[in-house]
Structures are given as C-alpha cells and as structure tokens.
Design a protein around this nucleic acid. Sequence first.
DNA 1: CTCTTTCTGTACCTATCGGTACATAATATT
DNA 2: AATATTATGTACCGATAGGTACAGAAAGAG
Lengths: 193, 193
Amino acid sequence: MARPREFDEREALTAAMQVFWEKGYEATSIGDLTARMNIQRPSLYAAFGGKEELFEAALRAYSQMSLAYVERMLGSGESTKAALQAFLQGIIDGPGGGNPSYGCLCVNTMVELGPHEPKFAAITNDYQAKLTDLFREAVERGVRSGELPARLNPALIASVLSVTAIGLSVSMKSNTERSRVEPVIKEILTLIE
Amino acid sequence: MARPREFDEREALTAAMQVFWEKGYEATSIGDLTARMNIQRPSLYAAFGGKEELFEAALRAYSQMSLAYVERMLGSGESTKAALQAFLQGIIDGPGGGNPSYGCLCVNTMVELGPHEPKFAAITNDYQAKLTDLFREAVERGVRSGELPARLNPALIASVLSVTAIGLSVSMKSNTERSRVEPVIKEILTLIE
DNA sequence: CTCTTTCTGTACCTATCGGTACATAATATT
DNA sequence: AATATTATGTACCGATAGGTACAGAAAGAG
C-alpha cells in the first residue's frame, strides 16, 4: 500500500503512559510526549489523534495492565491473606516495580481530572469497580477454602481494601517513607481474621 | 502613607484557595484567579508575588483551616467513636460543607505536585502528620475515658484512620455515589471496638 | 521503473500562558 | 492644598501551549 510506520504503536503508547503517569495530564506537554515516545509531532497526531485521545488510550492501557497485575497477584499462591498483604505491600514499595512517587495513574487521574472530565471519570470508576471485584473474589475464595472466617462480608471487605489501597497510594506520593504507613497494612488485615 | 488596598487580602486569599481547590494548580490560570478574587492582575502580583507563592499561601491557609475543623470535630462531643464516625461521614458528604468532588486540597496537592515539588510536599506532609496526631489524641482520650479498649495502639489506629480518610476523599472525587463507600466507615470503626 | 499512498521532519499557526510597564487614580502626610 | 506614595486598570511582553501545512522520503502496486 504505502510507507509503513517506523515505530511500534504499542511501544509508543507505553512510553506515553509512563510520561502521564509521572507528570500528570496537564503538566505533560506534547514535546514531553514525542521526546519519550521517540516520534515526531505529526506522527503522534496521525497515530493517536491528539493529547486528549492519547491520554485516554494510555489510561485504558494502564487500567488493563494494572488490573491484570492485581489479578495475578491475588490469584497466585495458596493463602488469600498473604496475597492481599503482598499486594498492599507492593503499593508501598512501588506499584509494578515503579517508583512509589508515581502512585497509580488511575488514582492520580481521579484526583486531577475526575470532577471535571466525565469521560475519564468513567474509566477510573470502572477501574475502581473492577479492582473492588477482584478483592471481593479473593475474599470469597478465602472464605470458601476455610482460610477466612465465614462471617465476613466479602463485598464490604473488598470496599475497605479498595479505599485502603487508594489511601496508601496517595499517601506515598509526597512522602515515600515506608515505615510511616507499613503497619497500617497489618492492622487492616486484622479485619479478615 | 498612600492609597490603600481596595480589597481584603484575606478574602482574596480564600477565593484563590477555592479556585485551586476546585481546579488544581496547573489547570488554574491567573485569569481564573483574578476573576474569582475580584482583583486585577497586577494587584495579585503586588499582594502575593506570583502564582506559585499564591498557591503556597492558599495551601497553608487551607491546611490551617482544615486542621482546625478536624480538631473541632474530634474534640467536641462525649463519644470518640461518634466523633470519628461523623468526621469520616463528613468526607463523604462534602468536606467543610463543600462539594465532595473537590476533595481535600492537601490530598489533591499530594497527588498533583507531591513527587515534583518538595516545597509543597513538605506542607502536605506536615498536614498529614498533624492530622494523624489529632486522630491519635482522640483515640488516646477515648482509651483514657474507658470508652475504647485499653489494648488499642493509638498511633497505629491513627495511621489507619489517616489513610482511610485520604482514600475516601479520593474515591469520592470521581464518583460521588455515597452508598458505594459509606459502609466502609462502619467497618473501619470496628477496629476500635 | 513508475506512480500512488502513506509516513517523517521542519517549520509554522493561533491562542494562551505567567508576568510586567506605564499611565492614571486615590489617599496619608506635610 | 500640594506632594509623595501606593494601588488600579489597560495594554502589552516573550515563551510556550496544542495543533497543522507542506515538502520530501520511503515502500507497496502495476
């Protein structure tokens, strides 16, 4: 047909995602993006439409990636409690192996754009709902297997874990001193004993 | 000596605080500020120095105001547990009587500027530390009065409450459906039973 | 090999950003 | 009342924002 793309669209999107993750939407310029994506300005517009569309794509990609990571974390291993503990600890140590200062792109977006951009709020709400679902399923499995007490309300515990995860993520963004919030994990997990 | 200010500096600062609270730092323009502060551009620079300095002043003012509000909430009333419950409920209903979509300016700032602006991170860290202190003191009072069990670790409970408050505030920003997180409060408060 | 189609790179567009110069208006002091 | 001093309002500054026009380069189809 014609000249093919000289860059990998998926790689470029991942790079864009990282920039938005680190700097936020407003503080990220097109120049920041093209530099990290290693493409030229018009290529960005041709491939992704514009800053807003690119951000939407990056946010969706992040959401998928993060939820897959959570599912993997909570599904693996025999102990539900150990898995939950490890996941929450991961938020403090740096989500997905990244810097804890970056937090979670979805959480960051809830704060920066949630109240003013319904399109993005819908994505982050969906993210939070699915995250809570994954927690609920994990707790249900724990209850079924007998590891966790039967009196637990899995949906309720899941909401608590979701709020806690968000709180931990935000709390680490401006103060990365782990010891400050690390004991919180253990205390929260007494709720499932 | 000379011509006096035609506006009240405190009022103007409060107006600026509200704009930053609603829109965030980056998304707020000088025009947005002067419009809501009812002053002219050069007056803003003469009185506050610039956008960054104005934001710092607004952030400090918010921190003071918010901590005073928390202190009042947690100090009043006979029951520590009821006070904590009311405070957390207030986050969901709208902090300080405002819209819950705005969340808390300090929390918003942790997310938007925390990792990149040490000057502001210092202010928000101080805020969080003092908030946690107020929680700890409240729990200590509850323990001393016999309302709460003596086995509690007040500092630990305070950290949990602080993380929970942040999580609730953020969670409400992109989804103001109260019923989604309301039960979380009750469940968290079982930790002090 | 030629032509058509798509992508790349440079250069540029307008709008808006944070910040300021300057003339004018208003007050406290003398 | 005259003057010195500060605030106000308009108009503007350079820099940068997001976005695009256009010419040249590269690859498929014939």
